[in-house]
Every structure is written in C-alpha cells, then in structure tokens.
C-alpha cells in the first residue's frame, strides 16, 4: 500500500472539514464538520501506524482514544448547543455575537478617559454588560 493514498484522502477530508466549519451556519453542522476533521486525523494515524509497523500500535490506540474523545466532545458540544438554543432560540453560529465589541455609539467616547470621561466610560461598560445580561435573562424566561 502506498502511504500517499490514505494520506491524500485524509488531507482532502480535512480540508472539507475545514470548509464545513467555516462555511456552515448551523452549529450542529459545524459539529459534523469537526467530526470530519477528526476522522481525517484518524485515517492519518492508522495509515502511519501501518506504515511504521509500530509494535505498540500507538497509532491505532490513539485512534481509539480520539474516537472516544470525539464521542465525549459531541456529547458536550450538543449539550452546549442545546443550552444556547434554549437561551437564544437559535443555533446559527453567525448570529451568536456575544463576543463582539459593543457596537453602540457611546463606546467611542469612553476612549478619552484621560480627559475625565473615565467614569462615563465605566458607566457605558457597565451598561453594555447589563444589556447582555438582561438580554440573556429575557431569552431565558
């Protein structure tokens, strides 16, 4: 067996997984794409294990471990997705923007804190935190 065949398949599978992670909106689809990438890695591990004739079978054993971890990961990931779905009513990845900078107009003013607007900036910061929290609260109810 030429190693290059499984390795190339694995590389292409990985790239497809990458595309899926980057392009899909639905969080479950993203999880699926992650699984694709993990499987690409598994294939690599097995192929190299065979090629190198490892007496400890580290490649295959690690593949087993990866599969187990993938199972755990999917379980946890789905739990998180469900939690997000409960609070946000959506699992579209590009609509979950809690990580973003607050786009409110007052943010620019908190910049000149050295001019005395520090307290204002604090208030804005607090305010933005407040909206996030309260938004979450609304969704939860």
């Amino acid at each position: 067996m030429h190693i290059v065949y499984p390795v190339v398949v694995s590389a292409l599978l990985f790239s497809i997984g990458v595309y899926g992670v980057l392009a899909r909106r639905n969080a479950i689809l993203v999880l699926m794409s992650v699984e694709l990438m993990l499987n690409a890695v598994n294939l690599n591990l097995v192929a190299f294990d065979v090629w190198l004739r490892d007496r400890l079978h580290s490649g295959q054993v690690l593949t087993l471990f990866v599969i187990v971890i993938a199972a755990a990961e999917v379980g946890l990931g789905l739990a998180i997705v469900l939690a997000v779905f409960r609070t946000r009513r959506t699992i579209d990845v590009d609509r979950l923007r809690a990580l973003s900078e607050n786009a409110a107009g007052t943010d620019d003013e908190s910049g000149d804190g050295d001019g005395g607007g520090d307290r204002e900036g604090d208030r804005n910061g607090g305010g933005s935190r407040g909206t996030v929290a309260s938004g979450g609260g609304e969704a939860a109810t």
Partner: peptide, 17 residues
C-alpha cells in the same frame, strides 16, 4: 490609538467563523 483600535475592532464582529 483608540481610533485605530476602533478600526481594528470592526473586524471583531463576534462571528467566530
């Protein structure tokens, strides 16, 4: 500096993808 960071911040739109 803050203005520049504001420009950079536009990229930080929360879309993890």
């Amino acid at each position: 500096a803050i203005g520049l960071s504001g420009v950079v911040r536009l990229v930080q739109n929360g879309n993890a993808q």
